[in-house]
Amino acid sequence: MLNMLLSQVLDLMTPVLLAAMAGALCERAGVFNIALEGKMLVGAFVAVATSVAFGSPVLAVLSAVLCTAVFASPLALGGARLGGDPIVIGIGLNLLAAGLTTYLLGAIFGVTGTLVDPAVTALPKFVIAGLADVPVVGAILGHNALVYLSWLLIFVFNIYLFRTPWGLRLRGIGEVPSAAAAMGANVSRYQTAIVILAGGLCGLAGAQLALGSVALFAENMTAGRGWIAVVAVMLGRAHPLGIALACLGFGLADAVGLRLQGQGLPNQITDIAPYAITLLAMIGLGLRGMKKRSV
């Protein structure tokens, strides 16, 4: 029972965690990225569409990463270089993602609503027989590669940001771009690269959302998870461990919501849980120091 809950939490938090890491990278580079929602949606669509065409989960994940990185390029060009307003571009990208995926769903697959296809299979899970019932261990085992990759990325991101020269430069660029430029850093090239990399991460998030446990694409299936990732970046102060913690909290709220739904609570109410918890967390933890960026 507890094992199942924990396992579910880990599954539910993964897409948000991947997207939040993308958001945190952009935040560190000084680009306010509110297009996570749209980029995830594109990733999910591309993953499913590639699955239908080739039946290969590996290819699906790779093309999701690639296409989403391309999709992020307007933000990379517009937001990273001076002149474009990242908020406007973010809103535009979110709406473009919603429109484009729905349009292509109809135009290519002749489907409205949900795309299910026998060729679309969920990513394989690493199940080790006999260990599933061992407390905690059982919950940690039995996920797909993207889940473990997301955990690995927390540490990679941490090391990149705080231990490597490039991470140091990124933090400097995000904090005082003019000072970084004065010391010889190519600010806009860094920002462009990071935003595109973040696009790739969102592609992973979308792939996990579509192929993690359900193996389908549905219109607007992100349902606000990209926005929760934006909040997770704020709550975790763009620190890899901080956002991991925030996403864990979100996964828990989501899982408990689903549990309560099983107990007969209407799902409309439990659907609110992640958003309400997110808001309450922001209110409770307070977002001091965020005022200057309030829009």
């Binding site: 908020i87 926005w227 909040v231 704020m234 808001l279 922001m282 307070g286 977002l287 005022k291 309030s294």
Partner: peptide
Amino acid sequence: LGIPFLIASLLF
């Protein structure tokens, strides 16, 4: 509380 209006209004 300094929660950006953009985010708060959307979550609402």
